[in-house]
Amino acid sequence: MAPLLQETTFVVVDLETTGASPKKGAAITEIGAVKVKGGEVIGEFKTFVNPLAPIPDYITEMTGITDLMLAHAPVIDEVFPTFLEFVGSHNESVLVAHNAPFDLSFLKSAAKELDYPWPKYKSIDTVTVARQVLTKEDVPDCKLGTLAQFFGTKTEPNHRALDDAKATVEVLHGLLERLGSLDITTLEALLDFAKTAAHIQRQNYWGMRST
């Protein structure tokens, strides 16, 4: 029997980085994660990460994270195994992020660099789900700040990893409530919905590009 969403352990993660892509040399500077089950927070993870490179000025302006703040922070080699331990087994935990492809690209890149096998985590992108669940009448866009305002989250997103992860938790719960009215109550149904939503959005994107 498929596990119910209320029985599923979600690990909501957010990263701050030195740039847009690990393929272009950008690195993780901060990891925040919140583990939730049945609507309750059961654990939090927060750490700076020394990227061993200067932080671009525009990143410092956006996040408030400076080179000085990271000078004595652990490097990713020290942080990564602890993070994976926090997340737990891929059979038990589902990773959630707002714009998940971004966060997952950095985590998978770190795993590859450190020669860690990447666990086969199931993942949910709250952007993809929100675009399918909410209408333009609800929200003008699906940025985290917009969704946080729409759902009235207690934590305001501020481009810092743990606060953004906490806000994403509340957005996730708001989206799950909406999905409940569509009779999506199991993890399997949620993953199917998210997969279909991503496919529809890709089709729409390429349809718009071709017109």
Rank of each mutant, 00 (worst) to 15 (best):
residue 131 R to F: 02
residue 19 G to P: 01
residue 69 M to G: 12
residue 153 T to I: 09
residue 55 I to K: 05
residue 175 L to N: 09
residue 153 T to G: 13
residue 161 A to C: 06
residue 185 T to M: 09
residue 12 V to K: 02
residue 182 L to S: 11
residue 28 I to G: 00
residue 155 T to F: 06
residue 81 P to F: 01
residue 75 V to M: 14
residue 185 T to H: 04
residue 205 Y to S: 09
residue 205 Y to N: 05
residue 172 L to I: 11
residue 64 G to L: 03
residue 66 T to G: 14
residue 58 Y to K: 14
residue 129 V to C: 13
residue 81 P to K: 10
residue 72 H to M: 04
residue 68 L to Y: 05
residue 94 V to H: 01
residue 48 F to I: 01
residue 14 D to C: 00
residue 177 E to T: 15
residue 123 S to N: 07
residue 190 L to I: 09
residue 62 M to V: 15
residue 85 E to F: 00
residue 85 E to M: 12
residue 166 K to H: 06
residue 125 D to G: 01
residue 79 V to C: 11
residue 159 H to T: 10
residue 41 V to T: 13
residue 84 L to G: 07
residue 46 K to Q: 15
residue 196 T to N: 05
residue 134 L to W: 06
residue 4 L to Q: 08
residue 149 Q to E: 15
residue 185 T to L: 13
residue 134 L to M: 10
residue 48 F to W: 08
residue 62 M to C: 07
residue 139 V to S: 12
residue 137 E to N: 14
residue 11 V to S: 02
residue 76 I to G: 03
residue 2 A to V: 12
residue 34 V to P: 00
residue 78 E to K: 14
residue 89 S to H: 05
residue 85 E to H: 14
residue 99 N to I: 06
residue 95 L to Y: 04
residue 140 P to Q: 06
residue 159 H to G: 12
residue 176 L to K: 05
residue 142 C to V: 13
residue 122 K to V: 07
residue 76 I to E: 01
residue 6 Q to H: 14
residue 156 E to M: 14
residue 112 K to R: 10
residue 163 D to G: 13
residue 199 H to P: 02
